[in-house]
Design a binder for these strands. Structure first.
Lengths: 238, 238
DNA sequence: GGGACGGTTCGGCCGGCGCCGAAGGGCCGA
DNA sequence: TCGGCCCTTCGGCGCCGGCCGAACCGTCCC
């Protein structure tokens, strides 16, 4: 790759604008937003939003789908989402990688924060304390091994098969991947297995999405299922 | 805190300029560079480099140490280095972060970094693991003493005389000086003695310079010489 | 002390970028 | 067919940020 920083700078420039950064963070919920939704969310005129979205799509950070008169836009993929999340995590440390997180500025944000910290999606897999707890439980049960990088054990493979149909997936995506959690500062399960697990949890009603957020709420059924399948004891909803 | 993208944008802005990005990439070798070195490397005036370094240090991405009239600057830590590496890797994917994960192109960079960590020049004397190892060996042999600051013992003075002609040097430069190594985080030998030792090692063919880099390669002759003269056992080249 | 050197500060120039409003085009539903 | 909605294009404005050169300060070397 090139030794000059032009490419790096070009990529960073995409996120170096508050409006674009706000848009990308909003898209971290994994859904597709329309251009006007993003414009209102970021507090700019629609024409301005168009320009920003052109840049982000052109830069490969976002993918778009035109449907009728709507322009739907979403994060381009897991790497893009990882990038945004990682940068946001580093930026969240009061601008100091290594400092403690800033106190929530308001009650609503505190509530939001707590909900997000408890359980949320990280693009397409589980994150937050729940994501870490599930990952830990899977490790304790021998479904995951961290000996030489993160791998799914044979037992873990059987466990996934029993959990969800269509396992293993055909995609060339790595089965498992370690993803650093920005609230827990600990790794949780990403990759195809993480995505499949999350998808099943939502399909089966273990988790329900909280509107306009990437927070998740654990249902009673989910609590029971996780206890039965992983021996994971979770406190009732707070 | 994460709701608006201001923080994220602020962090990304640090890397959104080609000059700053080039500087950060240069610093990925793990070494500490001086301001002028970085200025020349990035192709800007010293005054411009100062401004960029102020931003990067202020943003927590870089750490600085003032030594004499020099301003040494290095990546602030592992998180910062990870951030730069990850962003650079994503930017290298043909500018498409959404594409599939890139092959470990960091292999070459890993090699580069290892080579630099192994042996390199710091100014005009030895640094890296080799520099630290030599310093340790000289201390163990009683050639150096750290009792009241770093001094060359009488025996060390004789050792230097036997090693190289023109010892002691006429310059009023301090004979020995402790210089903090940024990869080892331990002091190594600088000053006139360190310079003379390094010069002799290169002249005598113990070390050869690696082109377009500060890295050094230890020859077989050098390995033998260091074993004979310092009792220093070094592993063969990797 | 004198000279060289590394680094910093200050002022000023300039290009680029983000923003908007107005106008226009495509798609939809009545 | 017609009006309304979503989005885009275009022109223009204001500002921020990167760049330099000149002057200055502190350090090191002789």
């Amino acid at each position: 790759m090139e030794r000059d920083g032009a490419g790096l700078a070009a990529l960073a420039t995409l996120l170096a604008d508050p409006t674009r950064a706000t848009m990308c963070l909003a898209l971290m919920d994994g859904r597709a937003w329309t251009a006007t939704e993003l414009a209102r969310h970021a507090g700019v005129a629609p024409s301005t939003a168009t320009q920003h979205l052109n840049l982000l799509v052109g830069g490969g950070l976002l993918a778009e789908v035109r449907q009728g008169r709507h322009r739907y836009v979403r994060l381009a993929g897991t790497p893009a989402a990882d990038l945004v999340e990682r940068l946001a995590a580093a930026a969240g440390d009061a601008g100091r990688p290594g400092a403690e997180p800033a106190a929530p500025s308001s009650l609503t944000t505190a509530h939001r924060r707590r909900a997000l910290a408890a359980a949320r999606t990280c693009y397409d897999h589980l994150a937050g304390t729940l994501g870490v707890a599930v990952t830990d439980a899977m490790t304790a049960r021998g479904l995951l091994s961290w000996d030489r990088g993160l791998v799914l054990t044979d037992e873990g493979d059987r466990w996934m098969s029993a959990l969800a149909g269509g396992w293993p997936p055909e995609s060339r995506r790595p089965l498992v991947r370690s993803c650093l959690d920005w609230t827990e500062r600990r790794p949780h399960l990403g990759g195809a297995a993480g995505a499949a697990l999350c998808a099943h949890a939502v399909d089966a009603g273990w988790l329900v999405r909280v509107r306009r957020s990437r927070a998740l709420r654990l249902t009673d059924a989910g609590r029971t299922a996780l206890r039965e399948r992983l021996g994971l004891e979770l406190p009732p909803a707070g």
